[in-house]
Design a protein around this nucleic acid. Structure first.
Lengths: 206, 206
DNA sequence: GTCTATATAGTGATAGAC
DNA sequence: GTCTATCACTATATAGAC
């Protein structure tokens, strides 16, 4: 209902960019205002507090991240192909939101209140658990059917998660260390995606 | 030469604990002083600036991390067993310094000057590159000998790195989410170590 | 070496003019 | 809706007493 005015939108964009690269504490409302091309007071006019502004962005991002998990198993494929497809989609989404994993983890690790709130949300909202159970059932069935080797779903999930997000969390360092231009960076990311897929699928071989 | 007085040591310990859990910006010298049981001015007396204090801890930690990589290949084993052994040692070291990966990555990602300095150090100090080459040669030989399947050393390295540090970076969240007591946490970590080893060794199978 | 007191600067946030 | 001015607060850092 409260349609975004141009200025409000500019502030949101500036804040998002800054929070993503430097984190919450390292970003000041003055800096956000400067980047948005307005006065610092206006930031507080629209969002009252810095914390509010951050939450708005943070939650929106978390939602989009979650929505990505909701993608269901593509039909007409065997499990291995379907998993390959879904890992690829997940990886691509994170690639399109390169800085998101770091920001989320950074805030959840350094800020105990946010961590508390996040875990509370995961624990109370049945949607997340249901989604996990669905994946878990799928894995168990494939194991029983002998299509993949025995593995705990939590382990598999953590493997995929680790290999995906570490690529992007370390990217700012990697980029600088090897002086990657954007084309070289793109290639590097493609390679990591390949490698991740290979590793996980080999892991699952009976 | 400048032997640590008790107070100085207390300040160092307090600072280390706080920097590790909350990061640089979220930690104030006042808080460090409180935790160390002294006045805030004393922190500045010993280390002059907060940045100085941080660097001292940060560099010491990075050095110990690096020293861990220096461990040479245990003799009298074939490559696979030796790699398993070394991955285990690396994992155990990180476990003994659970919060280190997050702090290092956090500072290198959010603070571009520190990132610059870090990359400069890696690039100019021949020791690091030499260490990498050594590992690279080892891998190539094993590939040629047909003992392991073809893989790029950088990919293998990144796989091991990702699976190891993600375990510990996400630990504060995981711990809270599943209400792990210290025994359950220990078990979880043991499992992740097992899983990491399995995954990597399967990845290398011809 | 350790303290109190304080200088200086920056922060988030609000009041009020336009 | 957007600005200037300003408040209250906290931070780092230093000066100076003991």
């Amino acid at each position: 209902m409260n349609r975004n005015t141009p200025k409000e939108e500019l502030i949101l964009q500036a804040a998002e960019a800054l929070f993503l690269t430097k984190g919450y504490t390292n970003t000041s409302t003055t800096e956000i205002a400067r980047k948005a091309g307005c006065n610092q007071a206006l930031v507080h006019y629209y969002f009252r507090t810095k914390e509010n502004l951050f939450q708005q962005i943070f939650i929106k991002k978390l939602m989009s991240l979650f929505a990505e998990f909701m993608k269901t198993r593509p039909a007409g494929m065997d499990f291995t192909e379907s998993l390959r497809e879904r890992m690829g989609m997940y990886f691509d989404f994170i690639e399109a939101n390169k800085q998101l994993p770091f920001m989320v983890i950074n805030e959840l690790v350094t800020n105990s209140e946010r961590r508390q709130a996040f875990c509370e949300e995961l624990r109370t909202n049945p949607m997340y658990m249901q989604l996990y159970r669905q994946f878990d059932n799928e894995i168990r069935q494939e194991v029983v059917a002998g299509h993949i080797c025995p593995i705990d779903t939590a382990d598999l999930y953590m493997d995929i998660f680790s290999l995906t997000i570490c690529t992007f969390i370390t990217l700012p360092i990697y980029r600088l260390l090897f002086q990657l231009d954007s084309e070289a960076e793109r290639q590097y990311i493609r390679r990591r995606k390949e490698e991740l897929t290979t590793t996980i699928l080999k892991r699952l071989r009976p």
